[in-house]
């Protein structure tokens, strides 16, 4: 009997399955077929900046999280996503789609933790599951609600970043942080935890 219980241990560990909803994410990333028809003709005016609605605040009720969202880009020294230095803030990838987008992946990344500052805004991100609700307030004051459809865990060496930094496919919100085993020597986590959410039906 004891042997039986021990065999069943992995299922009792209390950890949720690491990944769920991956197929949904792949489907969302598929670009729509181009429209056919006549030859498109555009004006040749110099390009000016399009109006962008930047995410300003992220709320996740299940995690009791309310974090400021900064517009960030690329860390010039490393070429990596410039996650805000303060672990209490999270960063929106300003080169990708904003809240006004009708296609592509709106990306917000945040720290799970930091050696100096402790737990980060996304410390419990991996506890999210399909159906959980996210609320994003835009720079224009508008509030958009998203529903989680997937939680995925990848080794950082294998995370399909093209899928999450895509500018085509169905519009979606992607939250990214670190997870998995921690290498105390390099002070890095092995994995990325990726949450995908879709606009909630109105």
């Amino acid at each position: 009997m004891a042997a039986l219980l021990l065999l069943a241990l992995p299922g009792c560990s209390g950890e949720p399955a690491p990944s769920v909803g991956g197929a949904t994410v792949s489907a969302l990333a598929s670009p729509a077929a181009p429209a056919s028809g006549g030859v498109p003709v555009q004006g040749g005016a110099l390009p000016s900046g399009a109006a962008v609605v930047a995410p300003a605040r992220l709320e996740i009720g299940k995690l009791k999280l309310a974090a400021r969202v900064d517009a960030v880009g690329i860390d010039a020294a490393t070429g990596d996503f410039a996650v805000p230095p303060s672990v209490d803030e999270v960063g929106w990838y300003r080169f990708g789609p904003g809240l006004e987008a009708t296609a592509g992946s709106i990306v917000i990344a945040g720290h799970v933790d930091s050696a100096e500052q402790g737990k980060g805004a996304f410390f419990r991100l991996r506890e999210l599951a399909p159906g959980d609700v996210l609320k994003v307030t835009g720079s224009d004051g508008s509030v958009r609600v998203f529903t989680v459809v997937a939680r995925e865990v990848f080794a950082k060496t294998a995370v399909p970043l093209e899928r999450y930094f895509a500018r085509d496919g169905v519009v979606r919100l992607t939250l990214i942080t670190c997870g998995g085993p921690f290498d105390a020597r390099t002070r890095h986590y092995r994995d990325n935890v990726v949450i995908t959410a879709q606009p909630a039906a109105r």
């Binding site: 921690f182 986590y189 990325n192």
Partner: peptide
Amino acid sequence: IEGLHSTPGGVPSGTGGLLE
């Protein structure tokens, strides 16, 4: 011409090891 973007090299977002 659009669609020439690359992804960031990675998303480093934890140095604390507190999860463990």
